[in-house]
Amino acid sequence: MSARHATVWPVWLVMLTCAALMSLPLPDALTPFRPPWVTMAVIYWAMMWPKRFGLGSAFLVGLALDVLQGDTLGQHGLSLTIIAYLTHRFHLQIRIFPLWQLTATVFALLALEGFILFWIDGVAGNPAVGVARWTQVLIGGFLWPPVMAIMDRIRERLEHRSTALA
C-alpha cells in the first residue's frame, strides 16, 4: 500500500507542468490554438488511475488553474470535477476503446468542458469573445493520441517502479 502511495507525486508534477503550459507565453496569433493540457491530463489520469486520482484531486487541480489564470475561483474546479466524474463513471468502458473511439470520447469531454466554462462565464457576466474556446477543443482532440502515448510512458514507468518496490 505504501508503495502505491509513493508513486502519486509524479502525477501531481505532470499536473503542475500542464498548468504551467497553460500560462506559457505564446504569440497572440497562437493563443487560440493552445491545447487544454490540464483537462487532457485530468481525463487521462482519472481514466487510468481512478483510485489514486479522484474527484478531489481534479477539484484541487482546477483551483490551481483558476489561480494561475486569474479566473473566478472554482470555475475550472467545477468543470474538471464534472469531467473527472464522467471519466470515472465510464473508465472501465472507455479504457478498452480502440484509439479512434477513445479520441472521439475525449473530444466529447473537451467540448463538454468548453460548454461548462462558457456557461459559467455567461452566468458570472465575464464576456468571452472569440473562437478560442472551441479551437482549443479541436486542437485538444487532435493532440490526444500523442499526449496519451506520452502519458502511457510515464504511467508504465511508475507502475514498473511500484511493482519493483512491492
Binding site: L63, T72, L73, G74, G77, I120
Partner: peptide
C-alpha cells in the same frame, strides 16, 4: 464537490 465549487464561484 460541485456545490463547493459553485459556492466558491459565487463568493
Amino acid at each position: 464537490i460541485c456545490a463547493l465549487a459553485i459556492g466558491l464561484m459565487v463568493a
